[in-house]
C-alpha cells in the first residue's frame, strides 16, 4: 500500500517538474538559440526518404540551417536565393540544410510529399528535411519561415554564429543592399568573427501542431 502511494507521488511530482520545463511554443517571448550558443544535431527525414544528421557531414566547416516551407510567400520569395547560397557555399564548407517545421495537417501544401514536388520543381541541391515532431524547430527557437541559423563547427560542437534574415529585401532579390547571411559566412571563411550576429525579417509564423 505504502509502496504504491510513494510510486504515485513520485510520478505526479516528476510530471509536474517536467511540465514546468515545457514552455508554450506559441508564446511570443523569444527563446531559442542566439549567437554563441551550442546547437544540437538532429536526425530528420530528407525528401529522398533517407535520414540526415549534421554529423553526416565530416568535411563541412559549418552549416546554413534554414527553416523554410512550401506555402509561405516569403519562403517562396527566397527559394532561388537559398539555392544560390548552397551552390556558392557548399563547395566552401557551408552547405545549406533546409528544414520544414510546419504542421501539414493544417497546411497541406507543406506536407512531406509536397516537399518532394517543390524540391524537384526548383532543382534544390540541398537536403529538404521534414521536422515532423517540430522538436528541432522548438529546440532552435525558430519563429518564422524563412529563419536562418548559421552554425560553425568547433571541435565536436556546433556553435551558432548568426541568426535571422538572409538579406534586407524579401520582395526584390535585385534590390538587395545588404546580404546579411553572406556577409556572416564570408567573415567566418576569412577567420573573422561575425560582426552582425542577429537580424530580423518578416515571415510567416511557424505552424505549430494544435494540442
Amino acid at each position: 500500500m505504502n509502496h504504491n502511494l510513494i510510486t504515485t507521488a513520485v510520478i505526479v511530482l516528476g510530471s509536474m517538474i517536467m511540465a514546468s520545463f515545457i514552455t508554450n511554443p506559441n508564446d511570443s517571448v523569444p527563446t531559442g538559440y542566439k549567437a554563441g550558443d551550442k546547437a544540437s544535431d538532429f536526425k530528420l527525414k530528407n525528401i529522398n526518404d533517407q535520414f540526415v544528421s549534421l554529423t553526416d557531414y565530416k568535411t563541412a566547416k559549418g552549416f546554413i540551417v534554414v527553416f523554410t516551407c512550401n506555402h509561405c510567400p516569403y519562403a517562396i520569395a527566397y527559394e532561388d536565393r537559398i539555392e544560390e547560397l548552397d551552390k556558392k557555399y557548399a563547395p566552401k564548407g557551408y552547405p545549406v540544410i533546409a528544414i520544414n517545421p510546419n504542421d501539414a495537417a493544417s497546411y497541406p501544401d507543406d506536407s512531406f510529399e509536397n516537399m518532394k514536388v517543390r524540391a524537384k520543381q526548383k532543382g534544390f541541391t540541398f537536403p529538404y528535411l521534414y521536422d515532423e515532431t517540430q522538436a528541432t524547430a522548438k529546440t532552435y527557437g525558430a519563429q518564422r519561415t524563412p529563419h536562418i541559423y548559421l552554425l560553425q563547427k568547433s571541435g565536436s560542437d556546433l556553435i551558432v554564429k548568426y541568426v535571422g534574415a538572409i538579406d534586407d529585401n524579401s520582395q526584390d532579390a535585385k534590390a538587395v543592399k545588404v546580404k546579411y547571411l553572406e556577409n556572416a559566412v564570408d567573415e567566418l571563411l576569412s577567420g573573422k568573427d561575425v560582426s552582425s550576429k542577429e537580424t530580423k525579417a518578416i515571415g510567416c509564423s511557424i505552424k505549430w501542431k494544435k494540442a
Binding site: A165, D168, N169, Q171, K177, Y180, T199, K200, A201, I202
Partner: peptide, 9 residues
Amino acid sequence: QTDANVWIN
C-alpha cells in the same frame, strides 16, 4: 519599406 531588420525592431 525595405530592410525589415531596422523597422521590425
